[in-house]
């Protein structure tokens, strides 16, 4: 049923509102080691499950498949990998980290089992291809987040 019938719809209006709440997030012991390594050593760390051999980047404390404790089996991954998928961000929004258009890619680091999302830069959107090799470019200034890797750039063949 249309509740906004003509004779009463004159009373409808829209009030602007806002939700603003302070908030914090803890990376935890394992997540902190991952971020600190990016920041201080410019090295990307993962963990390997000794049971199912899965390599997780970012790292996990326990294997999500078999609940094996894996947070002591750190492995250093290379800074290079393969772009397994991508999208081009064309809309503007206040929360976005870059000026549009920019490329968001799924990067499968060499030795890792699952890709993770990051920004791909240094290439025009029309030239991006699935399967191309990319390399981490680290940020000059730390933010204590995954953006301590500034972006991934194409590897010069």
């Amino acid at each position: 049923m249309n509740t906004c019938r003509n004779e009463i719809s004159k009373d409808c209006f829209v009030v602007p509102g806002k939700m603003a709440l302070p908030n914090q997030y803890f990376a935890g012991r394992v997540g902190s080691k991952f971020i600190i390594s990016l920041r201080d050593s410019r090295k990307i760390l993962g963990v390997r499950c000794p049971k199912c051999k899965s390599v997780y980047v970012p790292p996990l404390e326990y294997c999500e498949k078999d609940m094996t404790k894996i947070d002591e089996n750190w492995v250093e991954l290379g800074n290079e990998g393969v772009l397994t998928n991508y999208t081009v961000v064309n809309y503007r929004d206040a929360h976005l980290p870059r000026k549009v258009p920019y490329i968001l890619g799924m990067v499968l680091l060499d030795g890792a089992e699952t890709p993770f999302v990051h920004i791909v830069s240094g290439i025009e959107p029309e030239n991006v291809e699935i399967g191309m090799r990319v390399k981490a470019v680290f940020a000059d200034k730390t933010t204590n987040t995954i953006l301590d890797i500034d972006h991934f750039a194409p590897v010069e063949e």
């Binding site: 009463i8 719809s9 009030v15 990376a27 971020i35 600190i36």
Partner: peptide
């Protein structure tokens, strides 16, 4: 590591009739 943020989102609330 922790991050501190103020999540701030603008809304509009329609009153309805």
């Amino acid at each position: 590591i922790s991050i501190q943020v103020v999540n701030s989102i603008d809304y509009s609330f329609p009153t309805g009739p």
